[in-house]
């Protein structure tokens, strides 16, 4: 959150900077227009805040918050809106996003409680898509917060500030993306971890496994390649006047020139001679 607050400060700085720059370079009429627009934006945002309340029901400060509205208990379908979109969340302030997160969290807890009880009582959970909508909203909110964090970090430090990752080999010799995390012990003191690294992947069995595994991966790649080549072949055969450039852009991995020379791309019709 400290970073989020910093973002606010940065935003303010940028705003003052912009205004100072614009004072120098922009004509006064344009400036006026911009300012009036800004005011309008602020006004609309405020009105939206006043009119649109997040929570449709009055907040209850007890355990009944874990349950849906009693009106919906016996319903077979509960009508709800859609999930929050990215562009809607991008224009919200950090504070609003923070509030919305907790609203979504409570909503998810409520839905999970209802779902659990419905499953226990062998009843159908009405409108289960509500859970997906909450999940999508939360994902989008997280994306927006992440974007802001990243922008702030890039502005201040030049790096994204994301969780550091690196490619490492696992005991079977397969490479995977390792996402670094905090540890209680430094690596040279962590005897258990050091011992776990003693298991190499130079053995016969592992080598055989890797060979077969790579063969499998290669086969998948090969089959995909063949499939796309056959697709192009059939397209060329059935549509003699097809736009080759479009095909080239759609299937960049297929050698279309070679296919055009091939007999297989010719259709089952008698070619017109002397026309």
């Amino acid at each position: 959150m400290s970073s989020a607050l910093k973002i606010l400060n940065v935003a303010k700085c940028v705003k003052t900077l912009c205004s100072s720059v614009s004072n120098k370079f922009l004509s006064s009429s344009l400036l006026n227009r911009m300012q009036s627009q800004q005011q309008q934006n602020v006004l609309t945002a405020l009105s939206a805040l006043n009119t649109r309340t997040f929570h449709s029901t009055s907040p209850r400060q007890d355990l009944m918050e874990f349950f849906d509205d009693p009106k919906n208990w016996s319903e077979n379908e509960v009508k709800v809106g859609r999930a929050w979109k990215l562009e809607e969340l991008r224009i919200k302030s950090n504070k609003e996003l923070h509030q919305l997160w907790y609203i979504l969290l409570k909503e998810r807890n409520m839905l999970l409680t209802m779902e659990h009880e419905c499953n226990d009582k062998m009843e159908l959970f009405p409108s289960p898509e509500r859970l997906d909508k909450v999940k999508i909203s939360m994902g989008n909110l997280e994306t927006v917060v992440r974007e802001r964090n990243k922008a702030y970090h890039l502005l201040e430090t030049g790096i994204t500030g994301e969780r550091p990752t690196r490619m490492v080999h696992n005991p079977l010799g397969l490479r995977h993306l390792y996402r670094s995390c905090e540890h209680v012990l430094p690596p040279h003191m962590n005897v258990k971890w050091i011992k776990s690294r003693d298991i190499g992947f130079g053995g016969r069995a592992v080598r055989k496994f890797l060979l077969l595994y790579r063969e499998k991966l290669y086969n998948i790649k090969r089959k995909a390649k063949n499939r796309s080549r056959n697709e192009v072949m059939m397209l060329l055969r059935r549509n003699p006047n097809i736009d080759v450039q479009v095909l080239r852009s759609k299937y960049p991995n297929v050698d279309i020139d070679k296919l055009l020379r091939d007999d297989k791309t010719r259709g089952h019709f008698v070619p017109k001679v002397g026309v």
Binding site: F67, R108, E117, V145
Partner: peptide, 10 residues
């Protein structure tokens, strides 16, 4: 700041 924990009342 953005806890991801869930709780079900059972």
């Amino acid at each position: 700041f953005l806890p991801n924990f869930w709780m079900k009342l059972i």
